[in-house]
Design a protein around this nucleic acid. Structure first.
Lengths: 226, 226
DNA sequence: TCAATGTCGAATGTCAACATTAGGACATGA
DNA sequence: TCATGTCCTAATGTTGACATTCGACATTGA
């Protein structure tokens, strides 16, 4: 028998590796919105070939983090009010479907995991945590819901907005996140409760409203800087 | 002033060209579901480098038409009942959002174009048209709605399922499309009417039901062959 | 006979050199 | 001064050769 169920036995190739590194650099602000991502520069700094960087950038474009046009290179997406509007409107539709699908398909274990995450959030709130870890828990929570929905295409669509959500929210908690902290735990706890109930219509509506609340909160904190 | 708004002034590069050719080959059945797409083979037959083919295949993977795993190549997606279920469930959610967004944002011209498309459908029905042109009109109709929704991310998400929808439906009309012909025109005409009205809830529900109807019709015609 | 292992072929992953393109600097003309 | 056309440069697009990996078959040993 094998010694242990390794976290990830699958090899990923240099393109994914490069994509991970570049994504991280974007999140940390090393590449601000609108910045150009030059292939030669990245290839040199990451120690891989231009081909791999190129493929990695294509992956990031799939996630909506960068945008590239022919013979004009790729740039980090910029965060305008319209962009926020677009991403969150789409996410509301996706979350609605994910929630209702998860309501039918989720196993007891998966629901328990959601409980655990909500508890972790509550603990973070009482502690002195930076908003970043709280945000990570928030995203992880929704990741689990999408997993439970049991629809690979839906997960793919979620991946196409997930990174942008993360980027937007990161930018926001840098400006203060009191309003965010105050609501997160309660809203997520309510979602778990509704997932366990069998009122599909209410769940669908609340899932959309949950995203709307996040959007409004984001726009309120972001608009002065735009 | 410029002489005319050219249909496509943008150069696209070999990768897109290759992707178009391969996509067409998949639609015509030259590569049946499950078939392996070997890079060297394609590169030779298309007269371009392997790198371009590789990039083109990545584009097709974004559209959900092919699937590729590390060091094991890329294959055409196969059409199981679960796949149909996944794609159409996601599409229902997207169409719902597209319809309600279009209801708010569509210009009069865009609505008129929808009318034109519906009339073209009706004309095809009375003629001896193959189902293929009818299907093309169907897809074009929904393309316009997504355009009218005025949300680039939503259009991207639509592109990720559009080709699969087309593939599924093509496979279906090969087996006979009486049921399809009987309903298409009326259903689309109703959608345009609802887009012009201001009852958002009814439009949202009917948009979902329109997709559901297509899904059921597809599963009914397809299941014996699976 | 069967299972574990070594070897082989064919495909993909990676790389560095070459070709092409967009955008700006400069000079020229009305 | 403005418009236009021509270079030039820095980046991307493209290519063919090289390295790596997977699956299958043959081989070996119990």
């Amino acid at each position: 028998m094998t010694v242990a169920p390794l976290p990830k036995a699958s090899r990923r190739g240099l393109a994914q590796e490069a994509a991970d590194l570049i994504r991280e650099a974007i999140f940390t602000g090393h590449f601000p919105p609108g910045a150009q991502l030059r292939e030669v520069e990245l290839a040199a700094s990451l120690g891989v070939s231009r081909g791999s960087v190129r493929e990695g950038l294509a992956l990031l474009e799939r996630e909506g983090l960068v945008h590239s046009v022919w013979h004009r290179g790729t740039t980090v997406v910029d965060v305008t009010a319209q962009d926020v509007e677009e991403v969150y409107t789409l996410r509301a539709a996706l979350d609605r479907l994910a929630a209702t699908s998860a309501q039918r398909n989720a196993t007891a274990d998966q629901l328990t995991e959601l409980d655990t995450l909500v508890r972790a959030m509550a603990q973070e709130i009482s502690g002195d945590a930076s908003g970043a870890t709280l945000l990570a828990l928030d995203i992880a929570f929704h990741d689990r819901i999408y997993d439970a929905a049991n629809n690979r295409r839906l997960v793919e669509a979620w991946r196409a907005v997930r990174s942008q959500i993360y980027l937007f929210q990161l930018r926001r908690i840098a400006l203060g996140h009191e309003h965010y902290r105050a609501r997160v735990v309660d809203e997520h706890r309510e979602l778990v409760t509704l997932l366990r109930a069998d009122d599909r219509e209410t769940l669908a509506r609340r899932a959309e409203e949950h995203v709307d609340s996040a959007r409004c909160s984001l726009l309120a904190g972001l608009s002065p800087s735009m």
